[in-house]
């Protein structure tokens, strides 16, 4: 019973890292999981070195189950300073490893919502620039 809701997951849920909104974000994206109503919005500010863009700041808000919100908190902590290209290449398994708890197929979607929002946000930002 404890394995899914282990201490570090509950901690990220209770005390989410990078929680809130950013003023003057370079992009903002929001999505919800239609099945369960989980919702996550992510604001991102980028820093650039030439034409290489990195995640300088990111913040999320949302509501939903513990897994969806804790996974978003862990994801933002993890991607800080990473390049947008790197983030776009992140595999779902990377987030599941961060969560580190056994998830049933139905709950994997909860954990991956944050990654989906972030990747789609980057994609739309790139589209807008080109």
């Amino acid at each position: 019973m404890q394995d899914l809701y282990r201490e570090h997951i509950l901690d990220h849920y209770e005390n989410p890292r990078h929680h809130g909104t950013l003023e003057h974000a370079d992009f903002t994206h929001e999505e919800s999981n239609p099945l369960c109503g989980d919702r996550i919005r992510i604001d991102v500010k980028l820093g650039s070195e030439g034409d290489r863009y990195r995640i300088a700041e990111a913040a999320f808000t949302g509501d939903g189950c513990i897994i969806s919100q804790a996974a978003a908190s862990m994801l933002l902590e993890d991607v800080m300073g990473k390049s947008v290209d790197e983030v776009e290449q992140l595999e779902p398994q990377h987030v599941l490893d961060l969560v580190g708890a056994p998830l049933t197929a139905a709950r994997v979607k909860c954990a991956l919502l944050g990654l989906k929002v972030l990747k789609t946000g980057i994609k739309l930002w790139k589209l807008q620039r080109s």
Binding site: M1, L4, Y5, C36, G37, G64, I67, T104, R107, C110
Partner: peptide, 21 residues
């Protein structure tokens, strides 16, 4: 307690309920 978290924890006890809309 979000219904999905509740349903997952109940499943650990062998109790099957529905969560969602």
């Amino acid at each position: 307690v979000h219904p999905h978290d509740l349903a997952s924890l109940l499943d650990r006890e062998g109790v099957a309920i529905r969560a969602g809309h």
